[in-house]
């Protein structure tokens, strides 16, 4: 089963996605995409690390180019999150730049081949309107396109609001 978990900042999506992944096939892999830049990032990463502690996740830190990531034994993969991955692919030195969208999608498709269950966490960054500078707009559009492709492709899509899961799409019973 492939599940896309969608939500805003501090919506409870990570906690929800982890619980979902824990119910998937063992072994559990956690692909962390967040590049720490400062103390605030370190704290956020630490908070997520604590949440995963003792849940049995193998953590793989991967900031770009998921396509070449090799998973040794198929199980459940939790990829968190596309918002960071998109920023890394678009803006970091090792990133795919203009080819970010395809790099992200090819990466997710490669993971699909290497697991039984896949949970992908992605971000709602689309709700504050306004005018953006070009780089930010490119980021928003890239993430939107990736979200839309995966929501179409995956069997299940869940939006998390205030920690409450809202089923947007699920397999026919």
């Amino acid at each position: 089963m492939r599940t896309l978990v969608y939500g805003g900042a501090a919506s409870g999506k990570s906690e929800y996605a982890e619980a979902l992944a824990c119910a998937g096939a063992a072994p559990l892999y956690y692909i962390a995409t967040m590049m720490p830049f400062n103390d605030e990032d370190e704290q956020r990463i630490e908070r997520h690390r604590l949440m995963r502690a003792e849940k049995g996740f193998h953590t793989l830190e991967r900031y770009t180019n998921l396509k070449d990531l090799k998973i040794h034994e198929p199980g459940c993969i939790l990829l968190e999150c596309l918002g960071n991955l998109a920023a890394n692919e678009l803006f970091s030195e090792q990133g795919a730049g203009k080819n970010a969208k395809n790099a992200i999608l090819d990466g997710v498709f490669a993971l699909e081949e290497q697991c039984h269950d896949l949970v992908v966490v992605t971000n709602n960054v689309f709700g504050d309107g306004g005018n953006y500078e070009d780089g930010t707009l490119e980021y928003i559009l890239t993430l939107a396109e990736v979200n839309n492709v995966l929501a179409q492709r995956f069997e299940r899509v869940i939006e998390v609001v205030c920690g409450i899961p809202i089923v947007m799409k699920e397999p026919a019973k």
């Binding site: 805003g8 605030e40 689309f126 709700g127 504050d128 953006y132 930010t136």
Partner: peptide, 15 residues
Amino acid sequence: NETGNGIVPVDKAER
């Protein structure tokens, strides 16, 4: 108000 559905604010206090 739902405030988490946008781009991460540049300002630390806002974040």
